[in-house]
């Protein structure tokens, strides 16, 4: 964990690195490695993730009897290279999660700011919507939407985007209301700044930090939601690989080919672990009260 001593401690990254404990640093390194692997999947995957080799079905990982050269993690139920499918599955799962989280941020952020700066009536409407979303188990809503509208990539991103927008809305509403009482906002208002200008130039820069923290924390929830939906067969359709779908298919082969389910399941575990730890770390850094301890 001292592999980066040359990162100047006076840089932001250096300070961040120095503030973490072993687990947090491990999560950072592992997360960066997974993100890189996902980004570079087309370069490092040895095989086309959808290319079948029916005569090489259910081959175990290298080192086990019956393994096929080149297939490091073995092959799946259609003879596809498991490592390549894991890499592409990770890529798609992360992409979907990022797109979904971004959509949630934009929607929730906009409504949260609106609730904070607009009048009581709009605030009440938005907060009722927030409370409703919190009250209904979102997995059920997602299952309903996917069964009605189908499970194309677009629908999937929309569903994931709707998961968690209310958290952004609540956080931003509270922050905006607090900021609106601050003297510098009063000053801007006295100087004749419009509500939009106040929101964009004075409020927004001051709420970035909690939003970034929330974005990171919600990412792992969205990854798990995508995995759940794909596991249930309502996610992206085969032969496209996502980690949840791979676990879903692989569960039928657990007794005789456990590697099919273990590889993507461990990847989901690793990704959510990294994202969760990093989110906590960011929150600790962003919260001045915690940082002071």
């Amino acid at each position: 964990m001292t592999a980066f001593p040359m990162i100047a401690r006076n840089t932001a990254l250096g300070a961040f690195w120095a503030s973490g404990d072993r687990i947090q640093r491990l999560a950072l390194v592992l997360g960066a490695a997974l993100a890189l692997a996902a980004l570079a999947a087309p370069l490092i995957a040895g095989f086309d993730p959808t290319a079948q080799s029916l005569i090489s079905r259910l081959r175990p990982p290298l080192g086990f009897e019956g393994a096929r050269p080149g297939h490091w993690l073995g092959t799946d139920e259609l003879g596809r290279d498991l490592l390549s499918r894991c890499l592409y599955g990770l890529r798609l799962t992360l992409s979907l999660a990022l797109m979904g989280a971004t959509l949630g941020l934009m929607l929730g952020g906009l409504l949260g700011v609106l609730a904070g700066v607009a009048g009581k009536r709009i605030d009440a409407v938005i907060m009722t919507a927030v409370d409703t979303q919190i009250a209904i188990p979102f997995t059920l809503v997602a299952l309903f939407m996917l069964s009605v509208f189908g499970s194309s990539l677009t629908v999937m991103v929309l569903v994931l985007g709707l998961a968690g927008w209310e958290q952004y809305a609540r956080i931003l509403r509270g922050e905006v209301m607090r900021l609106m009482q601050m003297p510098f906002i009063e000053a801007a208002r006295a100087a004749g700044a419009s509500p939009l200008r106040i929101a964009l130039t004075h409020v927004l820069p001051n709420v970035v930090s909690p939003v970034v923290v929330q974005f990171t924390l919600s990412l792992s929830n969205i990854i798990l939601l995508e995995s759940t939906l794909s596991f249930l067969g309502l996610g992206v359709q085969p032969p496209t690989a996502t980690l949840g779908a791979m676990v879903g298919v692989g569960r039928d082969y657990m007794p005789n080919a456990p590697w099919i389910v273990l590889a993507p399941a461990l990847l989901i575990l690793a990704v959510t672990f990294c994202v969760q730890i990093l989110g906590d770390w960011l929150r600790d850094r962003a919260d001045v009260r915690l940082r002071a301890r």
Partner: peptide, 24 residues
């Protein structure tokens, strides 16, 4: 489902653009 995936791959191999609809 396995046969469906294998068949669409065989179609792809002769130049047919194929996809699966997994329906309830």
């Amino acid at each position: 489902m396995l046969a469906a995936q294998a068949i669409t791959e065989m179609w792809n191999a002769v130049g047919i653009k194929a996809s699966i609809r997994d329906l309830p």
